[in-house]
Simulated assay, not measured.
Amino acid sequence: MIDFDVLEGEVKKGKFENSYIFCGLDEELIKEGIDLIVKKNIEDSLLDLNCIRLDGLTTTFDDIMNACETMPFMGDKKVVIVYRASFLKDKTDSAGTKLYNETLKYLKDLPPYTILIMYYLFNDKRDTPKKSNKVKALDKVSKVVHFDKLKKDRYYKKVEEVFKEKGKNIGKVEVRYFSEKVQNNFNIIIREADKIIAYTKDREITKNDIDKLIANSSEDDIFDLIDFISQKKVEKTLDLLYELLSKSDQHMLIISNIENNFKRLYEIKLFIQSGERVDGIASKFRLPSFIVEKLINQCNKFSLKQLQKIMEICLETENKLKTSGVDKNMEMELMIFNIFMTK
């Protein structure tokens, strides 16, 4: 198993495998990895003939095998790309399991003129290929590439390139500040860059602009936590809670942030019930409209009564931690379970 940096080094040396499994959260980065391999193996004039793309959600084993077995046209290599190949994930239906087993067996007998690239996207940032039994099996017959976070200097440079490609210059200090605040995912980075470019128009980008439009990463974690709660994902909620506690032993601050976020959902729900529109709510909370839309989606998962009760649970937990010598982690777990039990 390798990462993007190693893959790039191998491509530069002209070293290629017969098949690759790409995985990660960042689809833009994965596509860049695919482009590196394609450009080194297929001439631009022959792309339509020797680069085959198959939708991993609808493809069949026969589709994959037929694409791989067909000889390249006027070239030495052909590349077959199976994108969003969800059958590579551990949890799939019977059809996905069958397709995975057939493909796993076929990878041992690929024609030498074919490079097969299949990729799938993680469900969230806490997934890793090492947790997947299917990926472990694939790693024995194929080259698995994990598209994780880029190293700092390379990350900053690539973020700066995103702005330059859109015709917007950004200072070195500002690009680092932006890079540290935004989630390290180029699908998200591109959207956030578009938002800042549209907001600043013809003037220079400042730190103040970035602060106005991009939430802190800690706020993102709390948003994710509440999103998992709204979706009734107990295990993911607890995993994120433990991660937050491991980063910082600040139980009171975490509870306060959770309570404040649920309070905001309660207030937004009241505004919605009174007929307030998204733009009006965005103006009241000084938030971008797309963030408000996400918050509305969250608050729709709860009733006003539930939100009131959840805020009470947070307050009770906060008081316990202040006034007694209880096990803080245990009380935080209990708080999460009580929130899930709220009706």
Rank of each mutant, 00 (worst) to 15 (best):
F223G: 13
K108S: 07
K322M: 02
M341S: 04
G9S: 15
V38M: 03
S256Q: 10
M1S: 09
I2R: 10
E243K: 15
N101M: 12
S45T: 14
I190K: 14
Q250H: 04
E28K: 08
D35K: 09
F290H: 06
G167L: 07
L99A: 10
L287K: 10
D224G: 00
C299N: 09
K40H: 10
E32L: 11
K15Q: 06
N185C: 07
Q298V: 13
F262N: 07
N184D: 10
N297P: 03
N18V: 06
H146D: 15
F262W: 11
K149R: 08
I255A: 05
M71W: 03
V278G: 01
I313E: 00
V159F: 00
D239N: 13
N133Q: 10
L47Q: 13
D211S: 05
P129E: 13
I170Q: 06
I30H: 14
K140I: 01
S142A: 08
L110P: 06
G171I: 03
D26W: 06
D109R: 14
E312V: 15
F147Y: 07
Q306I: 09
F4Y: 15
K164Q: 02
S218G: 01
N66I: 03
E43Y: 10
Y242E: 12
R277E: 13
C299T: 15
T317Y: 10
S86K: 07
T323R: 05
D90S: 07
K172M: 11
I272V: 14
I291L: 04
I222G: 09
